[in-house]
Design a protein around this nucleic acid. Sequence first.
DNA 1: GGATGTGAATGCATTCACAGCA
DNA 2: TGCTGTGAATGCATTCACATCC
Lengths: 216, 216
Amino acid sequence: MSPNSSQQSEHIPTPSVRRLSLYLRQLEFLQSNQVRTVSSRKLADSLGLTDAQVRKDLGYFGQFGRPGVGYEVEPMIQQLRSILGTDKISRTILVGVGNIGRAIAAYNGFREKGFELIALVDADRRKIGKKIGQLTVQSIDEIERVIHENHIRLAIVAVPAKAAREVIERLAACGVRGILNFAPAQVPAPPGVTIRNLDVAAELEQISFLARHPDD
Amino acid sequence: MSPNSSQQSEHIPTPSVRRLSLYLRQLEFLQSNQVRTVSSRKLADSLGLTDAQVRKDLGYFGQFGRPGVGYEVEPMIQQLRSILGTDKISRTILVGVGNIGRAIAAYNGFREKGFELIALVDADRRKIGKKIGQLTVQSIDEIERVIHENHIRLAIVAVPAKAAREVIERLAACGVRGILNFAPAQVPAPPGVTIRNLDVAAELEQISFLARHPDD
DNA sequence: GGATGTGAATGCATTCACAGCA
DNA sequence: TGCTGTGAATGCATTCACATCC
């Protein structure tokens, strides 16, 4: 059901990709409220964006709308999942089961969002063997074997800053393609690997700054 | 048509403010390694940026460098903290002590980063009265009183998506100026309030997309 | 020599505005 | 009439390049 051959050779702005996730959330919300179609205007308003931006963003990936009507919620959700790659389950490893790691491991909305936590590893002997949810914590020494045996492509890193670089290099070396990094360390991404850094302290600093500079 | 550059209210690019936190992290790291000065070039390289960008970013806030030498690490750290507002401790409330909330509450690097967790509240009766770290979970019904009595300015929201809007509106109504929101919901920011949304599922989606589109 | 600070130039993202279609 | 899709125009962020200073 995809006659559209969206040519990907065109360069897609990073901010547009980021907003795709926002559109998907809002469309899922609309779907849960039995809404069948939505215009770029309404979608934009609910997210604090402009209608032109919504159309431009979607336009990078194909033609999804019906003039005079808008976008059909259900098919648009499928399209966005397909574009983001979350229509298929991505097998994911979690490295580090400290405070943040345990919170991630306990989150059970992964599958529905297109991800499956396959393995937990940690460097701390005392944590190895513990069960968190359905999974048992394994030694970080097993990380290469676990990744290969389970064909894992994505990783979530929640280790102390000092350990981040080594962990990320090991992950990259055994074929992991994308890493969500909670450690407050900027490790240069090895070739062919995408890293997104999520530093909670840095986010708080942004809040702090913005709260003091209201004219923004 | 000489554009007289007024000295008042120069607009600072949002991306520049974001990078300030990166500079601060890296400078703190350098300081812990006894490094005394650093050039824009070296700082940029370690973060995957360009030297011109570092200089331009810092240039929005003043003149901190010495030509021929670079930036002195220790004073620069102080300057950045002052700019971000983290040289003074910001009093912060945490709303929602589910998985993510507990992880945040257990994190004890807050003070050193310029934040202090003053109170925990939750809507779930069974959680009220429980101790997490030094703090006891209070009822969300107390939220207004707690915020006023403790002069709280910042909030971290880690509640289910459905509850996010009401929580954020209540926080805004009693004077909270900045909110870090982990709930996957886009709540329009009330006037005078800054909201930053941190949606872990959305971040994973980005990883998923980027891992499939290597040309980036 | 080595580095900053900053106008000017470039490049990228957003918004405009309108043709075209339901 | 209502709305999409998209080139053109605008606006914003990044990079260049160089005068200036240690």
